[in-house]
Simulated assay, not measured.
Amino acid sequence: MKLKRRTRYYLLRFSRLKASPHQVALGFTLGFIPNWFPTFGLGPILSVGIAKLAKVNVFAAVMGGIIGTPLWPVLFLLNYRVGGLFQDNPSKVEEIVEVEYIEAVNDTVGSIQSGSLQFLTGAFINILLSSMVLYLLVFMIFKIYRRKQGDRSSFPC
């Protein structure tokens, strides 16, 4: 019950931001970007920094950072998979349960030859694609719900 109420509260607060749909969508999108990298819980903090540098809505960036945090293992896997499509060597990771996170982070940070190029290639491609999709999605949703701002039942929670 508390989770549903809290979710509704933040969705309503999100819909009533006093920023343009562009500012909110860009803030959310930029806030999601750190989740593609192993930040070990610092993603929302990095999201705030990115939002302030880009001068976009900070609350939207924090929302993007928080929403992406539990998705990190899946995003990590996608980075390797997509990177493997553009590299000669096959992906080192086939399933989420195969991911040795500490070893993978050490490989990623350690050297270009150990798989980090594959990871970084996948991450940058995923960032480009997800940013376009997230921006358009949040922009359209925010614009639609902004029209219904007076209607309190506009969010389905």
Rank of each mutant, 00 (worst) to 15 (best):
E95D: 12
V97T: 14
G64A: 13
I112V: 13
G122H: 00
N79I: 11
I66W: 06
I125Y: 11
L78K: 06
P73C: 02
V99N: 04
S116Y: 01
F59D: 09
G65A: 03
T69E: 06
F119C: 01
Y80F: 14
L77W: 15
Q87A: 06
A123E: 05
N89G: 10
Q87K: 08
I66H: 01
I112F: 09
L78C: 13
G110F: 04
G84A: 02
T121F: 00
T121Q: 03
K92W: 05
L120H: 07
Q87P: 05
G68F: 04
S111V: 13
P70N: 14
A123W: 11
Y80Q: 13
A60L: 06
I102Y: 05
L75Y: 06
E103Y: 07
P73G: 01
D88A: 15
G110N: 03
V93F: 04
V82P: 12
V99G: 03
G65M: 01
S91L: 11
A61G: 09
Q87G: 04
V99F: 05
G122F: 00
V105L: 12
L75H: 06
N106A: 09
F124T: 10
P90A: 05
I125F: 09
P90H: 06
Q118R: 00
L85V: 15
D107S: 12
R81A: 14
T121M: 01
G115T: 04
G115Y: 06
V62Q: 06
L75W: 07
L117M: 12
V62G: 00
F76I: 06
F86Q: 08
S91R: 11
E94S: 11
P73M: 02
F76T: 08
T108S: 02
V82H: 10
L77Q: 12
L77R: 12
E100I: 10
F86W: 07
L85C: 15
N79L: 12
A123K: 07
S116I: 08
F76C: 10
V97Y: 12
V99Q: 08
N89I: 10
V82K: 10
F76E: 08
D88I: 15
